[in-house]
Design a protein around this nucleic acid. Structure first.
Lengths: 221, 221
DNA sequence: GTCTATAAGCCGATAGAC
DNA sequence: GTCTATCGGCTTATAGAC
C-alpha cells in the first residue's frame, strides 16, 4: 500500500466526488474533507477550484491519448496497409475501456467525469481537445478514412464524431445501465466493448445514402 | 406577438440560461432578472429551484415523446409491415431536430439542455425515462428489431442506445461544432440530420460480429 | 400574483501561525 | 506544507406589504 501525497489524495477525491454527483454540487470543502486535509491545502497546491478541475482532467486525458496514439503507431508500423478498420477502431475505443477497468487509473469514474465535462462544455476541455490532442484525433480520422475507401472525408468525420458520442454517452450512463442488466460489472463492460466496436465498424462499413437502396435492406432478411 | 405569463417567461428564461452556461452556475436570481420578475415569483410558481428545473424538462420532453409516438403510430398503421428501418429511425430522430428548429419549442436550446441533464444524471430525468416514456422507447426498440431481422434483441438494444448517445452528444455539442464548420446553422442542422439517419441505418443494417468477415471488409474497396 | 426586504447559511479565497 | 480562523460575497427560501 503506497502512501499518497496530499496532492494526489486531493486529485483522487475530486474524481470520486465528481463521478458520484457531478460538477454542480462540488465544493472545496467536500473535497478537503474527503481527502483528509483542509481547504487551504487545496488552494496551496492548485491555486483555485477551476485549476484543480483542469489538473484532474488533464492527468487522465494525457494517459488516454497516449495509449490511443501508441496503439495507432504500432498498427501503422505493422504489416497491413491500410490498417483494418476494426483494428483502428479498437485502438481508439479500447484504451477508454482499459482505463475504466483499472482502479489505478481512476477506474470507471473517469469516463463518467469526461462525459460530464463534455456536456458542461468545459472551455478547458474543449481547448485541450482542439490543441493538445487534435493531432491524435486527426491521425485517427485519416486512418479510418484510408480503411473505409467507399466513404468521403465529410462522412467519415461525422460518423467518427457520432461514435465518440456513443462511447462517451454509454460510459457516462454506465452505472445506471449496468444495474438494470443481469450481468456483473466485468461482464457488462466486456459486452459493452464488443458491442461498441461492432457498432462502430458497422456504421463505418456501410456506404453512404443507404436510402438509395432501401428495398435491399428491407428484403435482405 | 403573444404576451407570455410570468410562469412561461420563467420557464423560457431557465431554458435559455441552462443552454447557455449549464446547470452549475444557474441561480434563481439570474433567472428572475432574465425573466423580468423577481426571486419570490419563482418560488411562488414552482416552490423550489429543483421543482422549476423538473418542470422545464418535463414540458419539452412531453412534446418530444408525443411527436415520436405519433410518427410511430402513423408508420405502424401504414401499408408496409414491418416498417422500413429508415422510417422508424426517422420517426425517432427527426422530432428532436424539429424541436431544435422551432423557436416556439425552445429551438436548439432544449437538446443542449437534455444532453446536460443526461450527463448530470438527473434523478428526475432518469425516473421520467424509465416510467413515463419507457413504453415509447420499448415500442421503438421492438419496431427496430422487426425491421432488422438479422439482429438479435440484445444487439438491437445496444445499438439503439449507442444511437441515442450519438444523437444526444451531437445535439449538445452543436454550438461548438457548427462554429468550426463553414455552413449556416440551418445547413449544418440539415446535414446533421441526414448524416445521423444514414449513420443509424448503417449501424443497424450490418450483421453482428463483422469481425468474422474482416477480409471482406478490407477488400471490398 | 407580484413585489421588497431579509433571514440563515454556504461558498471560494486568503491571512497568518506553526 | 499544513493548519485554523475569518472575510466578503453570493446563495435559496421566506415573511409580509400591497
Amino acid at each position: 500500500m503506497t502512501v499518497l501525497s496530499t496532492k494526489e489524495r486531493i486529485l483522487n477525491s475530486t474524481e470520486e466526488l465528481v463521478a458520484e454527483s457531478g460538477f454542480c454540487d462540488l465544493t472545496m470543502r467536500q473535497i478537503s474533507t474527503h481527502a483528509n486535509t483542509n481547504l487551504a491545502a487545496i488552494n496551496y497546491h492548485f491555486g483555485s477550484k477551476q485549476s484543480l478541475i483542469n489538473h484532474m482532467l488533464e492527468r487522465r486525458l494525457d494517459t488516454l491519448f497516449e495509449m490511443r496514439l501508441k496503439r495507432l503507431d504500432e498498427l501503422e508500423n505493422g504489416s497491413e496497409q491500410p490498417c483494418l478498420l476494426r483494428q483502428v477502431l479498437k485502438a481508439f475505443i479500447e484504451p477508454a475501456l482499459v482505463i475504466s477497468n483499472d482502479e489505478r487509473m481512476g477506474g470507471q469514474r473517469f469516463m463518467k467525469i469526461l462525459a460530464r465535462a463534455y456536456a458542461e462544455r468545459s472551455d478547458f476541455l474543449h481547448e485541450l481537445l482542439s490543441s493538445r490532442y487534435a493531432n491524435v484525433i486527426k491521425r485517427f480520422a485519416a486512418a479510418i478514412e484510408r480503411a473505409c475507401p467507399p466513404l468521403d472525408e465529410q462522412t467519415v468525420f461525422w460518423r467518427f464524431h457520432f461514435i465518440i458520442g456513443a462511447l462517451t454517452y454509454v460510459m457516462a450512463d454506465f452505472g445506471a445501465a449496468s444495474k438494470t442488466s443481469h450481468m456483473s460489472e466485468q461482464e457488462f463492460f466486456a459486452t459493452c466493448n464488443h458491442q461498441l466496436v461492432d457498432f462502430a465498424e458497422a456504421a463505418l462499413s456501410a456506404p453512404r445514402r443507404l436510402s438509395e437502396c432501401q428495398a435491399d435492406t428491407a428484403s435482405s432478411a
